[in-house]
Design a protein around this nucleic acid. Sequence first.
DNA 1: GCTTAATCGAGACGGTACGTCCCGTCTTAGT
DNA 2: ACTAAGACGGGACGTACCGTCTCGATTAAGC
Lengths: 215, 215, 215, 215
Amino acid sequence: MRLDNVVGSLPGKVSRMPESSSQPSRPRSGSRRDEAARLAVLHAADDLLVEHGFGALTIEAIARRAGVAKQTIYRWWPSKVEILLDTLIEDSDKRLPVPAGKPTAESIRDYLRGFARFLTGDPAGKVLLALIAQAQHDPGTAESFHQRYLRPRRDQERDLLARAVDAGEISPRLDPDATIDALVGPLVYCALTGAGIPGDLVDTLVEDLLMPRPR
Amino acid sequence: MRLDNVVGSLPGKVSRMPESSSQPSRPRSGSRRDEAARLAVLHAADDLLVEHGFGALTIEAIARRAGVAKQTIYRWWPSKVEILLDTLIEDSDKRLPVPAGKPTAESIRDYLRGFARFLTGDPAGKVLLALIAQAQHDPGTAESFHQRYLRPRRDQERDLLARAVDAGEISPRLDPDATIDALVGPLVYCALTGAGIPGDLVDTLVEDLLMPRPR
Amino acid sequence: MRLDNVVGSLPGKVSRMPESSSQPSRPRSGSRRDEAARLAVLHAADDLLVEHGFGALTIEAIARRAGVAKQTIYRWWPSKVEILLDTLIEDSDKRLPVPAGKPTAESIRDYLRGFARFLTGDPAGKVLLALIAQAQHDPGTAESFHQRYLRPRRDQERDLLARAVDAGEISPRLDPDATIDALVGPLVYCALTGAGIPGDLVDTLVEDLLMPRPR
Amino acid sequence: MRLDNVVGSLPGKVSRMPESSSQPSRPRSGSRRDEAARLAVLHAADDLLVEHGFGALTIEAIARRAGVAKQTIYRWWPSKVEILLDTLIEDSDKRLPVPAGKPTAESIRDYLRGFARFLTGDPAGKVLLALIAQAQHDPGTAESFHQRYLRPRRDQERDLLARAVDAGEISPRLDPDATIDALVGPLVYCALTGAGIPGDLVDTLVEDLLMPRPR
DNA sequence: GCTTAATCGAGACGGTACGTCCCGTCTTAGT
DNA sequence: ACTAAGACGGGACGTACCGTCTCGATTAAGC
């Protein structure tokens, strides 16, 4: 089973309101969900992660910071991981869309460069790394993370590569998924190990893995 | 700052008794450290991680399982991460030494294949992934993990590559550290995302990244 | 300050609709109070108390059981204690009226026997005991319980005794309030401690405390 | 089933350390129970009850006030009721022992006067009333309260009365338990309803219920 | 053989966070 | 206007571990 995937998303509206569970079955009466509270929670979680790390990211701390009751969090999110997923999905859809349209070797290179920048420079990159990490510790996180983030992006990336191959822009020697792993893996690994991502890494990977070998 | 590194270690004895803290000076009298307790703790930690995941890996659970008092653990290890590091170092020194001697393209390929097997098939591979993960959540873990595991292996791997280049066996287009990241990163990333490692991934990576490009 | 009192009430209509809060003036327009909802709440409270005890008597449980919104309860009753008071007043007016008319030693004895039965056999007896109990825990309950239940009954009981003394039927040696306490106290105490009320207790109390001592 | 009882206890040592559960099975090693913490909890509970009422008596408040961790309370007491029982038993053994030795009508009268004072003037009296109340709300409390407090005192009181009857000091017309209920009930009832206990109540009860009727 | 000191098991301790329940207030839609 | 529905900020519940501590019992080197 192949269920990972890392980047992209059609720039169009995908999920303006990323409710963790599908839809809350539209209540016929009663108060509706408080959008301000929802945003306060997302931002509080994001801020706490960036400022104090995943260790300080407790439900109580999020509630405190967001000025929200604990129960309000438990009402809408089954775990802090889903909160982070909500922010990650919103942010990476916004700031790191998988290129649509006619692909070129250049647009793929740009996308990977953007991904490298996202990982090392964007607060949402920290969220991505934290989720990759937490997925190692907890099967529930792994499942959710794959379903809601990795798989959808991987689908778009695979499609991107296929179209580029069709257009004769690239000719990878590995199958599409393995190719993506070979391109994205080094970037993620560098980020995970705290090392920076060398400037020529993306270029060389694209050159060596995607470009036709002369002979 | 470059502080990652993933595999190897001279097969020779490096640390038969991996005391996390330096050495307990010289015990002028009284009982010495109980080796049975030490091993019980290491095995309990390993078993718990493999059987129930990192979430169930609490000091109390380790003590319970090892039949040891909590204080006995705190006396010798500053955190559960150091326990895992002890087991990881022992195991990967034993089962995944960085090849010494005259390197060939073939021996590098074998080492990477062994690494892939280690990640996906060996219990110690789970420990490695758990530590990579925990390093994202806690700076102390990151520091220790790099100092005691990643850095030493990376030094040996860098040396291995340099000798292979000198021998004309390989001609990578990236600098040594980036080359290792590009080779190891995809394997780790596949393991982290729960996907298997495709059979031809190592071969193709070696071929595309280390072999001279014809022209 | 003397504010207790335990039984009776003129059999005539005293409060068909015991609105805890005064009365909602005159409803100038819109729906009037839903009598069905009011009764549903009273019965739900009563049932829950009898079936699962005071501990399970939460506003949310009452609302759930009555099929009524929480707010509907809060609109009409300031607390669950007032709900119980409403049921208690209705029930004890109905099933345990303080005898009116010309009193005899016999009618007083009957009233006390009825009270004993009320305490041990009637669901409303459980309500009375629960309110006595809750009055120990909460001053607001104590105040309301005395004002709305104990004081009015005590007034009637005191009057009953006075008329009986005037008629030469009894000649207690204590002042009226103390006499009532001496008669009612043992019954309540037996009920509170879970012991049954011995069959001859009422008779002997009446004989020893109300009848003239021979000498 | 008769299980109530209210006052007394041989003046001799009965339970210097009223551990809720019998004995903690003498731990062969490890820290022993912290007596200071035990006392801090008992006093905090007592103080909170007297100062702010049973409603404010939460485990968290007790822990806060006693400067103790919540878990330390849960380790030794199954509920706040048992804490109150511990204080009540210690206090009433100390300040309201059931008279031993040769009983006279006078010593019984004194004991009842002491009981009246205990109920209305002693902080421990508030504890007793609170426990009587809580026993109405919770069967577990009722059970514990009867087993640990009411039953033992009732046994001593019954014995006291029996000895007094044998000595020809009194000649009650009710059986021993009912006699005690008839004497103690009015006092407790007055205390429960917040009324004071009239000065001549005890005297008249003793005179009318225990003294031989002339004729 | 006796002293001395470090280790061991056990586990109590002050804490923090967990996830749940209910409080009493409020807002929304429907009748 | 009143209802059912239910979200909201709050706070206590009882549990699990945290890392520190104290207690005897055991063990082995040095006297």
